[in-house]
């Protein structure tokens, strides 16, 4: 399973998006506002989710903001961080 697929499954479970299936989530759609409809509290939860499941620490929201654009962007960010580790 690639990072994008893994990420979708984790988000559905950990953010309680149970009405969605992984294939419903568009790789390039924005996670916040329109798109998945996440908000600022989900954003900080996402930081913990990335820490818990991938062992990657995101220090603050400045750093998070660019990574959290879409599933695609977040998966790329995770892969990059894992490769650098």
């Amino acid at each position: 399973m690639n990072t994008k697929e893994k990420l979708k499954k984790i988000l559905i479970t950990d953010l309680n998006l149970e009405e969605l299936a992984p294939e419903d989530i568009d790789d390039s759609a924005p996670l916040f506002g329109e798109g998945l409809g996440l908000d600022s509290l989900d954003a900080v939860e996402l930081v913990v989710i990335i820490q818990k499941h991938f062992g990657i620490e995101i220090k603050d929201m400045e750093e998070g903001r660019s990574a959290f654009q879409s599933i695609e962007a977040l998966a790329a960010y995770i892969d990059r961080r894992l490769a650098a580790a």
């Binding site: 509290l41 900080v44 939860e45 913990v48 820490q51 818990k52 620490e57």
Partner: peptide, 14 residues
């Protein structure tokens, strides 16, 4: 439970 199980850094803000 969220931080007892996974460490203080994994506490759930929600």
């Amino acid at each position: 439970d969220s931080f007892i199980n996974d460490g203080d850094i994994c506490a759930s803000p929600t």
